[in-house]
Amino acid sequence: MTTKIQETPDRIIAFLSGELDTAVAQETEQALKPLLGSKGKDIVIDCTELEYIASSGLRILLGILKQAREVGSRVVLKNVNDVIRDVLDLTGFISIFEFE
């Protein structure tokens, strides 16, 4: 599991790659900390290379979403594959995130 963060003038993009299971949840959460300081910029989580997500990963996404709302940022999940989309669907997350 690797994470990479890229900041542009109007958005912060996080690239998630690999499998976000419980074993790596904590370090991933740490790695994504910079997103919490979005200061109103849109947050894009690029899931093109994300292959798997467990509920511990979903919790990280939910934490980011809650924080972003407080400072008026949008959170967009990008290029979610069908396996992960199923999980988002089963948990109802599909209705609280934006997708592109």
């Binding site: 509920s55 709302r69 999980v87 089963l90 948990t91 997350f93």
Partner: peptide, 24 residues
Amino acid sequence: SADTTLDAHSRPIGGLGIHLTRRI
């Protein structure tokens, strides 16, 4: 099980695991 119909703000951080397992 977690209530999957709540909006982001009122979502509790728990109960998702058993919910997912039951659904799968």
